[in-house]
Design a protein around this nucleic acid. Structure first.
Lengths: 242, 242
DNA sequence: CGATCAATTGAGTGTGTTCAATGTCAGTGG
DNA sequence: CCACTGACATTGAACACACTCAATTGATCG
């Protein structure tokens, strides 16, 4: 499959010790003994096939999930049945933070490629936190970061025009991929559909398509189907002022 | 002053025990002994006069703040110097959650009326959490709720037209006021300027003005300067589908 | 009372939407 | 192997909504 040739992610179950999600997941700052306790409550699930749900809105909230490999979109359903994409998650991203303090999840989490996740039962995690201040600190920090990202991306995006919003999205994605040391040079692979991206950006697919075209005409990006490359990083930065 | 006549909030320093913020603040679920420990680290600050800052972007993050009485807007500054209003806080609301895990605050917090806040030094709060699982649980729940609110209000608002966004804002505000048992019948007092509301909703002041006018023409709200009343609650609910 | 800032109103413009048609691609079955 | 299917993506033309700019009215406070 072309998708799997182009997508550099490997497709197999990972142990915590070889998991690429290190930087973003909870183990940062823990002693090896503490990390052991954390590892004991973690359970790897997968593979989830594209379109398959990791959790659904109606499910009762039990666990946080860290994406080990693959990618996930989260979406909510509007009164009229419309699906709204509220976010994308890649290796190392923590899912389910928004459900903490509630009984149910707030979204459907749908795999975009063959995907493995690491489940952390929340009650057990909470108990662990009481004994491990660093872990508690890490979760709180993670949630703070989540709030910041939400307001930055969605909130500030509101005041931008379509092209700038799109560029902000691409640059953010690119930075994330770079952080996880997945080839940033040859371009980014977009596992989701353009429709999903449009929904996330609050645009119609048609408008997104036109925005992509314009950015390509200006020489800022290269848009080859599901591969995107940012050619002129400086111009991009200027446009989104970051 | 007309503002103070119309605004039912009282203007004096409150002790924790008479603070109206009970329902929303951290003390929920704590034993009286535990509440005592929490109270020991809390410090009441105020009054802050309208326009005065409770904290600023450049300040290093030290404390969370609960609004005891009054109201606050938080805003960020764009590259070009534009101010973006990112939220409003009323009695019982917790401010600063978005700064957790970062060194600095992410916003300027500006009082909209004479305002008192209750400062909770975060390091001490974190220490307390290790001894008080319920407190830890409460903070985590509060942050989860914050994430939900952000995506619900800002995220879903993106797919709405100006009128609906405005209505969502008003209904949310109204519900909040009802929860805090401040007269919801005679209307809501809006301590912020229309410009602030417009900024928060991602609109120009002109567009907001027109949207208000239209909603009034349709008999859904009554708009008397800084007092707003939702006349047709059912129609409002239908428009925003909640 | 005049000064100042906030709020409203109007007219013209522009960006994104809507709707419909066409194009592309991967998978399927003849 | 090729035509067919269905989902996704693109393109075009007309329209709607919110923006821009400018002028006016209204509120608040010294």
């Amino acid at each position: 499959l072309r998708r799997q040739i182009r997508n550099p992610r490997r497709a197999r179950k990972l142990d915590c010790f070889e998991c690429r999600a290190t930087a973003c997941c909870l183990r940062g700052g823990l002693s090896s003994e503490q990390f052991g306790s954390l590892r004991e409550i973690a359970r790897v699930h997968g593979p989830f096939q594209p379109g398959q749900a990791i959790f659904r809105i109606e499910d009762s909230f039990q666990s946080l999930f860290v994406v080990q490999a693959g990618s996930v979109k989260i979406q909510s359903v509007l009164h009229d049945g419309t699906h709204l994409v509220d976010g994308f998650f890649f290796s190392g991203d923590m899912m389910g933070l928004e459900a903490i303090g509630d009984r149910q999840y707030r979204h459907d989490a749908i795999a975009l490629e063959p995907t493995w996740v690491c489940a952390l039962p929340f009650e057990q995690l909470e108990s662990l936190c009481s004994f491990m201040p660093r872990l508690q600190h890490r979760i709180l920090a993670l949630m703070g970061q989540k709030i910041r990202q939400t307001t930055d991306n969605i909130g500030h995006g509101r005041y931008m025009k379509a092209e700038e919003r799109l560029l902000l999205f691409l640059v953010t994605l690119c930075r994330h991929e770079m952080m996880c040391r997945v080839s940033g040079q040859e371009g980014i692979y977009l596992p989701m559909t353009k429709g999903d991206i449009a929904s996330y950006l609050g645009l119609r697919p048609e408008s997104l398509s036109r925005a992509l075209h314009k950015l390509q005409d200006k020489g800022i990006i290269r848009n080859d189907n599901k591969m995107i490359q940012i050619l002129d990083v400086d111009a991009a930065r200027k446009r989104i002022c970051k």
